[in-house]
Design a protein around this nucleic acid. Structure first.
Length: 187
DNA sequence: CGCCAGATTGACT
DNA sequence: GTCAATCTGGCGG
């Protein structure tokens, strides 16, 4: 089942948890698929780590739910999905996936053979899937989109932790990952 | 216009 | 464990 716009119109922490186990799909010559194993939630003005008021690129966070919000940091593209109805800046960062389809393409793009190194981090994931700024702002809740997400199996435990690499973090756990999954960026 | 931060990665001691 | 390279946007740190 395709995840609808309504799915994303909720609190980013809820969406982040529900996205675990779902399947990220990108349509190219070959279909790329990855099971989402690690996410992080970001809020708007109340979140010191948020990009919501960082000028032009942050404007996407103020849009309606279910849009790609792509931001570069340290030379890496990071892929987010906007959450909450329009006017409530927030989003979910995809930090890691487990490769399911198109592994040979991912290996070529990442220039590594080790499958564990393919998508086990937010910058690695976007590189393997060929995601960059050109996808910023697109709606990902229709099958006609080059990127969309479908439901997956939910048989696993969820671990919560503080966000990774965030200098000014909130005092609550906003990172979620599948317990024991080897594609999570850090245990 | 130059400097610097930042939700990272990979190479190296 | 440490550290430098990487890109973009914001600000005058």
């Amino acid at each position: 089942m395709l995840l609808s716009k309504k799915f994303y119109e909720r609190d980013p922490a809820i969406v982040a948890m529900d996205l675990l186990g779902c399947v990220f799909v990108k349509k190219e010559k070959e279909i790329l698929k990855g099971r989402i194993v690690e996410t992080e939630a970001y809020y708007g003005l109340s979140d010191p780590a948020s990009r919501a008021r960082k000028g032009k690129i942050g404007e996407i966070m103020w849009e309606d739910a279910g849009r790609a919000f792509i931001y570069m940091v340290h030379g890496n593209w990071l892929f987010n999905i906007t959450t909450m109805p329009k006017g409530n800046p927030s989003g979910v960062l995809i930090r890691a996936v487990e490769p399911l389809n198109g592994v040979s393409i991912m290996k070529k793009r990442r220039k590594v053979d080790d499958i564990r190194a393919l998508t086990s981090g937010p910058g690695k994931f976007t590189q393997a899937f060929g995601i960059d700024k050109s996808y910023n702002g697109i709606r990902i809740y229709t099958k006609s989109s080059p990127i969309f997400i479908t439901e997956g199996e939910k048989k696993f435990d969820i671990v919560k932790s503080k966000r990774i690499g965030v200098k000014k973090d909130l005092p609550i756990p906003l990172r979620f990952y599948i317990k024991g999954n080897r594609f999570v960026s850090k245990a």
